[in-house]
Design a protein around this nucleic acid. Structure first.
Lengths: 199, 199
DNA sequence: GTTATGATACCGACCGGTCGGTATCATAGG
DNA sequence: CCTATGATACCGACCGGTCGGTATCATAAC
């Protein structure tokens, strides 16, 4: 094996181990020593490849951000009627709640870190904005095409993102209480049709 | 000063110092030693009054939960039309976004802790349920009185809470980007009237 | 009224352990 | 030979929590 290849493999092993451990125990609770042990790598190697523990976290975040785009394009680029697309997106997002809760917990811890650390905040913000922008675009299309009322699409995008992350948060704090993926779907449905009785 | 009074004052000073420091630096980042120093109290006194650092956090939470009820009764007990009450509640909740961001950050860290620690989770869950139950009750009244359509009021309460906490989360991660209190108001308004164009 | 007694409140040095990070050296690939 | 890579020993700071001891005060016996 080439020396460069070996190096890259070490790099990857660290990332992989960190991903698993962060998800399992959280970022703060996971020590660098444990990451090294799990990756089968020395501490020296760790600090050769990453300047700090936080740098590893940021690298993982970047991967997420990249991995996130295609799934987003799926419904942002859809040409079905917007209300239908929104319902579909809510459905797709709902599957997150059936996935690994460890990832969701890490996400939550990440947001908590972000509220104190500007560097992490920037990364987290990017994710939010990507989603909000995608949804705003969708709302604009609906507004143009007449399938949606005239509305503040900027705010609308943010409302949708907030609803989604709020539901995610709720699902973490009260996992057994309700079917949160259904709650999200309900929320979008209510948002579409309105809950007030017309007079 | 009485001995009992003195004791209670010490108790209070610890709580007060912890509140401020937790808000400032976060729970994990705040050491017991610092709390004691800021409270002008010895470490012995600290552990005389509280069995652990976490116990202090829980005490603070309990205070919040108690302080929260009256504000909730304000709109839960209102006899105005439900849509109007909801809009009012959104307005009232919006003031949170203009308040001290440190408290909101602590709230976020708390939720993060809750997702890993069952004891903290229980306390956080209680707060969520209080709100969700209050809103569900409100939706039921609206449904009964005819100001709202027939809807799943349980899910509706959760949707509203999720929207609120999601907006709060967004406001922490992207403070300068938007007027988040307006976003929340918009969200409730959209929920009431619906965003889909009727055919 | 005074003193003995026991409980409560409090003090602060100290503990074992963990942390992220660094300095130093070995070695193998180029 | 020499540099990229990685292994090991180690650092100082800090952590939550403990513990032996003391000061203070309410109560009750005398």
């Amino acid at each position: 094996m080439n020396k460069a290849e070996k190096s890259q493999e070490t790099h990857g092993k660290i990332l992989e181990a960190a991903r698993a451990l962060f998800a399992d125990q959280g970022y703060e609770a996971t020590g660098v020593a444990l990451i090294c042990q799990e990756a089968g790598v020395s501490k020296g190697a760790f600090y050769h490849h990453f300047p700090s523990k936080q740098a590893v976290l940021m690298a993982i975040l970047d991967e997420w951000l990249v991995a996130l785009r295609p799934g987003l394009d799926l419904w942002a680029g859809s040409d079905r009627p917007v209300p239908e697309t929104l319902a579909f997106a809510a459905d797709a997002a709902g599957t997150v709640f059936e996935g690994d809760p460890r990832t969701r917990r890490l996400l939550l811890e990440l947001w908590s870190l972000a509220s104190r650390d500007p560097a992490v905040a920037e990364a987290a913000r990017d994710q939010f904005r990507v989603y909000a922008a995608g949804l705003t675009g969708l709302l604009e299309r609906g507004s143009r095409e007449g399938s949606l009322r005239k509305l503040d699409t900027e705010a609308g995008g943010r409302v949708l993102v907030s609803l989604a992350v709020g539901t995610l948060l709720s699902s973490l704090l009260d996992p057994s209480r309700a079917d949160w993926s259904a709650v999200l779907k309900q929320g979008v449905a209510m948002l579409l049709s309105g809950i007030a009785q017309e007079r």
